[in-house]
Computed example of a mutant assay.
Amino acid sequence: MAETASLTDWSDEMRGEHLRRTARGGWARIRPMATMMLLIGTVMDGAPFTREELGPFVSTMGNPDGALTHSCWDTGDDLDEDDLAALPDQIAEATRYAAHYGLPPLETNDDVITLLVTAKVLHEIPDDSGRLRLHPASPLPFPSDVLPLSAEEEKVQRELRMGLVYSEDSFGIIGLFEPDGRRLEEVTTSLQRLARVIDGDPHDARQAVLLLLGEGDFTATEDITAIPAHKVFRLRCDWEKFDQSRISIHGVNDDGQIVVTLPEDHQQQHGAAVARPDDRL
């Protein structure tokens, strides 16, 4: 791949863009899960971390201190049968990613950092005192830019990149379900109306709705792929599924940190607890 530049603009806007590319750009599908958590952690303090300082972002119930020498694979009793059945294939895929760069199989959290650095997804740069700190590449590469994905995974990743184009529009539509802090289960609308909400056109609105429907927590009473722009339909949100599946960005807290809410499924496995956000990924 082409040489990547490291992040130098640590503004809220650029950090938010990094998080969106992490969550919606395909990294959420890459295993081990520590990969995504480390990429999220790199911008959480508005300045680059050392490897050790990133440890808390990969803490789990089995590794509460986030030790980098701990296994990067979830193998505890909290995994269900499907998770356990998928684990060998996930390890095999990650081994192939590492081998692509001449690295041994991923075993520890530190191994995951080494792979990201070797693939130039992260840049390890000495600070003024000589301590190595991790700067994410900017813009953050997509997984297909740096990893030898299978043909099936590459197809999924292309769809995710398309989704990234319409993610901002989908956030605007989600906002209709949370007026004044309330949570509505249904809104009645049309693609023409939604186009005005997102300051776009009906095509953009259609793609944004399809993006929401693809996550499984939104449903529509009409076939959005074929519905005329003026036709009224009802769009519904299943908030239980919403909270279980979506990564959310709240913004920046008083300490200058970007606050993220992880999906409930991930919180149950890793014990993460962060504030409720506004922007949904």
Rank of each mutant, 00 (worst) to 15 (best):
R276C: 01
E93K: 04
R51H: 06
T221D: 14
R280E: 14
R161S: 11
A86P: 01
R24D: 11
E17H: 06
G102W: 06
H70W: 05
A226R: 14
A86L: 11
P143E: 11
R51P: 00
G271V: 11
T108A: 07
I247D: 06
G41F: 12
P143A: 10
R196N: 11
G181Y: 04
E186F: 00
M33P: 10
I198R: 13
T95G: 15
S144W: 08
V58Q: 04
G172V: 00
G26L: 11
N253P: 00
V43S: 07
I249W: 05
D12I: 13
G26S: 13
L147Y: 09
S190L: 09
T50F: 06
D74K: 01
L149E: 04
V187K: 01
W10D: 01
D217A: 15
L84P: 00
D279M: 11
L39H: 09
I249R: 10
N63T: 09
T95L: 02
F49R: 07
W73T: 08
T118W: 05
G46W: 04
R31F: 14
P64C: 02
D169A: 13
D89E: 15
G41I: 14
I40Q: 07
M14Y: 01
E222C: 05
I227K: 10
P202A: 12
F177K: 13
S144M: 11
E153D: 12
D243P: 00
A85Q: 12
H270K: 12
F49M: 05
E168W: 08
D201L: 13
T60K: 12
L79C: 00
S245W: 11
W239V: 02
D255F: 04
